[in-house]
Amino acid sequence: YTMQIVMSFLMLTMISVMLPRAGVAAGRIEEVIGTRPSVTDREQVQDEKLRSAKGVVSFEDVSFRYPGADEDALENLTFTAGPGETTAVIGSTGCGKSTLLNLIPRFYDVTAGRITIDGVDIRDLSQHKLRSLLGYVPQKAVLFSGDIASNLKFGGTWQDGASDITDSSMEEAARIAQATEFIESKTEKYHSGISQGGTNVSGGQKQRLSIARAIAKSPKIYLFDDSFSALDYKTDVTLRRALREKTGDATVIIVAQRISTILNADRIIVLDDGKIAGMGTHRELLRECEAYREIARSQLSEAELKGGAAV
């Protein structure tokens, strides 16, 4: 009897501790569920203007400030990225590279100025239409529970549980992303299981699958947010060469930390504290942009610098 009484009091104590915790957790869940999204579609969208989109992305005097911040994260950005071109963005940590890229799929809306695709303000498009034009590879690769095939076909249009991305398109995307070798080495190949978050594959494999997922969609605009950082140099070079052939008529925007990734970009934008410090090719920036030269000195040898600076 004494033990039963003691255990009852212990249960009461545990309940008195757990109830307040449960109340706080329920309040947080309710807050998330009740939050109204700040990025919404307009009542009258102009999706019909982009029925045959080319993929010309233009930043027109764009500024952006995070809610509650005292200063702009990006300030007065103006540039154009066109089809068949690779536009790279480089700069020091915290200069706003990823923020710039995240404005294009409307993860945030610009504070001032506007971003257009083929001359149409992206805020005048439905989010579904806008994102159907984009192939986005985030800085932190994200995979979903299922198998490799379902992850690679995730970006397609799904009807009755099937994606419009064919098996041949999926396999081609995996080949371009240099993922075929490790996929084929698995017993079940493309039907091999993937844990939530991709915890059962390495960082490099996860990045290659994430890149393949974007390629399989065959979008008009590719957005790579430092998506090659987990790859070794040889794989990086091979992947980018194959990617260049695949994306010949698409607009490619790359955020990168390594200069070696963007040496051959048609246009390199150097960001410094949220502003454009320089814009041009690798050789032009070596001659004209001090911020770019500082990054280059930290990553390239003297021979590479002299070779790149030659006209």
Rank of each mutant, 00 (worst) to 15 (best):
Q139A: 07
I165F: 02
P105C: 06
Q299W: 00
G156L: 00
P67F: 08
A216F: 10
N151F: 05
R208D: 06
P20F: 10
E294K: 14
E188G: 00
G278E: 03
A214W: 08
T187H: 08
R208C: 04
Y108E: 02
S202G: 11
D41N: 14
L134F: 08
A291N: 01
G280I: 05
T247N: 10
A250Q: 06
L209Q: 04
V270L: 08
Q205R: 07
K246D: 10
I15V: 15
I211L: 10
A309T: 12
S163D: 09
K153A: 03
K234A: 07
L103D: 04
G198N: 05
F224P: 09
L271S: 12
V32N: 04
G307A: 13
T238A: 07
G193K: 09
A250P: 01
T86S: 14
S202C: 09
E302C: 01
I183L: 04
G280T: 08
E288L: 04
L300H: 01
L100W: 06
G204A: 05
A174H: 11
E172F: 08
F64C: 05
V110M: 03
L19T: 15
S16K: 14
K49D: 04
V311S: 15
K186P: 00
L285S: 10
F107R: 07
G248D: 09
D266E: 15
N200I: 08
R208Y: 07
I165E: 00
D232Y: 07
N200W: 05
S301D: 03
A179V: 10
F64G: 05
F107M: 13
T235I: 10
S126W: 07
G161M: 09
Y222C: 14
E172T: 14
V110T: 11
D272R: 14
K275F: 08
T80R: 03
E60P: 02
D272E: 14
P219E: 13
L152K: 00
A230L: 11
F9Q: 06
A22P: 13
V120G: 02
A296W: 00
K49S: 11
E60C: 07
I276H: 08
T78S: 15
S58A: 15
G55Q: 01
M170F: 02
I183Q: 01
R267Y: 01
G119D: 05
G307Q: 13
A303T: 11
I15E: 09
G27D: 13
D226N: 04
W158T: 02
L77K: 02
